[in-house]
């Protein structure tokens, strides 16, 4: 058993490396030897630019600093939006009155993609950080609210009955039963919120900004610099990947009880 499993893992790694390697080689060969080279640069050029940019400068900052700007905006808006979403969502799931009050408003606001708020956020908040944080707030708020809401609403009636029979009062039932029941759903919402936030911050930076990864690719566009765009996209992919892995790790840690097996 052990031997088979090990070799299967090896095959996965090898085939992954082979597949990506083939792709890079094909890309390299096509840019070196065909007309494609005049249109886009090869992977060697992009990676070289990426490494140079990490510690050198793209515009006023290095790529790491640009990524830091984008990340800081995401984390600020995500923290506020996530917290507000959890509070409003849980109250909607717990109290039918709160549900009746917020539901119609939520129904109007939710289908509007956060990106569509970019123009009005610039009018309301100007060009500074608050406009971007507001957009990320919207991007994370909607998803988290929805999931916290359904998570709290679908809390197991029998578990609530068990808690009452053990002497818990309403406040204790909310804190010890409804809240933990909703945690897995809230986490699912936070994960979607995080990837939406990442997309939204890029859009916001592309429309109006003077730093960040979105700024980097959009100035690449206006300066006709495809190398800058492609190295920016690689950086965006890496940060996006790190964010989603971080969210999954946090979920695994906090929802240990939800994952079966010894």
């Amino acid at each position: 058993m052990m031997k088979i499993r090990l070799s299967r893992g090896m095959i996965d790694v090898l085939s992954g490396a082979a597949s990506i390697g083939c792709f890079l080689l094909l890309w390299l060969a096509l840019t070196r030897h065909t007309g494609l080279g005049e249109l886009i640069p090869g992977p060697d050029v992009v990676l070289a630019a990426l490494f140079k940019g990490l510690f050198g400068k793209v515009g006023r900052h290095g790529i790491l600093v640009h990524a830091g700007y984008s990340l800081a905006r995401v984390l600020a808006g995500f923290a506020i939006g996530g917290a507000a979403g959890v509070v409003i969502g849980l109250s909607m799931g717990w109290s039918r009155f709160a549900e009746a009050v917020f539901q119609p408003l939520y129904r109007v606001v939710r289908p509007i993609p956060p990106i569509a708020w970019i123009p009005i956020s610039i009018i309301w908040f100007g060009l500074g950080e608050s406009a971007k944080v507001f957009l990320i707030f919207l991007a994370s708020f909607a998803n988290v609210t929805l999931n916290a809401w359904s998570g709290a609403r679908d809390a197991d009636r029998q578990l609530i009955g068990a808690a009452r029979m053990l002497g818990a009062n309403q406040r204790q039932i909310f804190l010890t039963i409804v809240l933990p029941s909703a945690v897995p759903q809230i986490f699912a919402g936070l994960q979607v919120a995080m990837s939406n936030s990442w997309a939204t911050v890029l859009a916001a930076e592309m429309v109006r900004s003077s730093e960040g990864l979105g700024w980097m690719i959009v100035t690449g566009m206006s300066n006709n610099d495809i190398v800058q765009i492609l190295s920016g996209i690689v950086a965006i992919g890496v940060v996006g990947f790190v964010l989603s892995v971080a969210m999954r790790k946090a979920e695994a840690l906090l929802c240990r009880w939800n994952h079966g097996g010894r």
């Binding site: 990506i20 249109l39 886009i40 990106i115 990837s195 990442w198 997309a199 890029l202 859009a203 592309m206 979105g214 690719i217 959009v218 690449g220 566009m221 006709n224 495809i226 765009i229 492609l230 920016g232 996209i233 965006i236 992919g237 890496v238 996006g240 990947f241 989603s244």
Partner: peptide, 17 residues
């Protein structure tokens, strides 16, 4: 490899090309 890149990050590249 493609998945963590939001679709809208491709906009500048495609517009340029």
């Amino acid at each position: 490899l493609l998945r963590p890149i939001p679709g809208i990050a491709w906009i500048p590249l495609f517009i340029l090309l």
